[in-house]
């Protein structure tokens, strides 16, 4: 479980996160939704430590991240997997080397064990026969899947996905959604997904946090959305109906 408490973040005089608190649960797909510019990505970057908020705390199962020293922070980070919005694959490495990278850095696996683990992760995301390709030579959806394979290579406890299916066709989007949902349940990961895609929210959302202009505006299970009386949330849902 990850607990975010009273986080404030400003850029210059722009107050992006306003006393933000939320909880994200283990073995569940926790969604962060909200309008563009609302602060979703900033929140996620605060949680993984790429941005340091001015105040507040972020606790990973009893480990108060912002209070840890450098070494202890690294230990938390080894438990984090992240899928970036634009995948951030290492373009100097092949698909299989991208997935092998965290294994090479942090395990004492032999070449054979690494190769087994890589093939397992790649088959988990339904990617076979692309091992030797460069990231620039595969499609957007394939890149996302390599990104997921890399993120799960070290069996993370926490998985962060920044817009996992933006820019993908609906079919591939659903595949990626299912994949994330399956591994979340299978490995009991605390998964946090930041998205605009209401369809994936209704398919796989367990716990939902709605950000409005840097405030937590609503929180709950997806069943509660339609019956909520929160105008901004309803407007947001209505806009994505078709």
């Amino acid at each position: 479980m990850i607990i975010v408490e009273n986080v404030n973040k400003t850029f210059g005089n722009k107050h992006v996160l306003k006393d933000f608190s939320a909880k994200f649960y283990k073995g569940k797909c926790n969604f962060i939704i909200g309008a563009s510019g609302g602060g979703k990505s900033v929140l996620m970057k605060c949680m993984v430590g790429l941005i340091t908020p001015e105040t507040g705390s972020i606790t990973f199962d009893d480990r108060d991240f912002l209070k840890l020293n450098y070494k202890e922070k690294i230990n938390v980070r080894k438990d984090i997997g992240m899928l970036f919005q634009n995948t951030a694959l290492f373009d100097s490495l092949s698909v299989e080397e991208n997935v092998a990278f965290p294994l090479r850095m942090f395990t004492t696996f032999t070449e054979e064990e690494i190769s087994d683990r890589v093939n397992f992760c790649l088959s988990r995301v339904n990617l076979i026969n692309l091992n030797k390709f460069a990231p620039s030579n595969i499609s957007g959806g394939q890149k996302k899947r390599v990104g997921i394979a890399r993120a799960i290579a070290l069996n993370p406890k926490y998985l962060f996905c920044d817009e996992p299916n933006s820019g993908l066709d609906p079919l591939t989007s659903r595949l990626i959604d299912e994949l994330i949902k399956d591994i979340t349940i299978e490995y009991q990961i605390t998964t946090i997904i930041n998205t605009h895609d209401m369809k994936s929210l209704f398919v796989m959302g367990d716990n939902i946090v709605f950000i409005h202009q840097g405030n937590k505006w609503w929180e709950g299970e997806k069943e509660g959305i339609r019956s909520s009386e929160n105008n901004e949330l309803l407007a947001f849902m209505e806009a994505s109906e078709f």
């Binding site: 080894k78 290492f90 990278f101």
Partner: peptide
């Protein structure tokens, strides 16, 4: 090379891995 890694978040990806 390093600048491209920075703007395409590859540097962030390294940091998040704890590198």
């Amino acid at each position: 090379e390093i600048g491209t890694m920075k703007v395409t978040e590859q540097i962030d990806a390294l940091e998040i891995m704890g590198i």
